[in-house]
């Protein structure tokens, strides 16, 4: 079932990553902040790709592509 929960999840990850980046850069560890951002983007990318595959499957079956 499609749900809006996924949106909240992604937004939460985004805000958390922004906070982590801020804290790490304030603590003088810029390189760790970069890796935290990279990890956050990778996690969200996994979720988004799954959602996209569901969307493409739905369109394929609906329009006989």
């Amino acid at each position: 079932m499609p749900s809006v929960d996924l949106i909240f999840k992604i937004a939460g990850v985004g805000i958390a990553v922004a906070v982590i980046h801020l804290v790490l850069s304030k603590a003088g560890k810029e390189e760790y902040g970069f890796f935290a951002t990279l990890a956050g983007v990778a996690i969200v990318f996994l979720v988004v790709v799954q959602l996209l595959s569901r969307l493409f499957d739905a369109v394929k079956t609906l329009f006989n592509l």
Partner: peptide, 19 residues
């Protein structure tokens, strides 16, 4: 806050609305 996360969130939002 994070531009690259914004793009992904936009994709997810569009897909959710269509689903």
């Amino acid at each position: 806050a994070r531009a690259e996360m914004g793009i992904q969130l936009g994709i997810a939002a569009a897909a959710t609305i269509f689903l």
